[in-house]
């Protein structure tokens, strides 16, 4: 079966994008899993969640990042994974923007739980680049409907 070249190109780019975006989420999630208590402090400092929800959020979010990152790399359940990835990045951008707008001087807690990684416009810029890459995956998965399998090519017949 003939596959148009443009689809093959999108497929190859999307594999690279999936690996990079997946690795970003895994790298972001693991330090938070290692030190959940410190991450809970970061979540609190964002001042967005009611107190009772902070711990449960801090316990769950890092695992969501790692699992979504893993699914993205493995190409499993791409529709759900890509939607969740985009929703998370949009949520991160919203939380960061809101706190920059109201002038909170807090640490990002993005890739580590250490203080010092203060949120600023660079943080937002970085997340917008990630968002544009993950929106590309929406395009690939939902509009082009290209399967995630690495065998999406004539190699499949071998």
């Amino acid at each position: 079966m003939n596959i148009p070249t443009s689809l093959k190109i999108h497929h190859r780019i999307s594999i690279i994008v999936r690996f990079i975006l997946g690795a970003i989420f895994i790298a972001a999630g693991i330090p938070k899993i290692m030190d959940t208590a410190a991450f809970a402090g970061v979540v609190y400092s964002y001042q967005l969640l009611p107190g009772m929800l902070i711990n449960i959020f801090a316990i769950t979010l890092p695992w969501l990042e790692v699992i979504i990152g893993g699914l993205l790399i493995m190409g499993i359940w791409m529709q759900g994974t890509v939607i969740l990835y985009n929703l998370l990045i949009i949520a991160f951008i919203s939380a960061l923007s809101f706190n920059i707008a109201r002038g909170l001087d807090i640490s990002c807690g993005c890739f580590s739980t250490a203080p010092g990684d203060i949120i600023d416009m660079d943080t937002i810029f970085r997340d917008i680049i990630i968002l544009s890459a993950s929106l590309y995956l929406v395009f690939v998965v939902f509009i082009k409907k290209i399967p995630a399998s690495i065998f999406f090519s004539e190699n499949k017949k071998k």
């Binding site: 959940t36 107190g51 009772m52 902070i54 449960i56 316990i59």
Partner: peptide
């Protein structure tokens, strides 16, 4: 970590 801790 307690799930619903009241510290915060």
């Amino acid at each position: 970590l307690p799930l619903f801790c009241s510290w915060s």
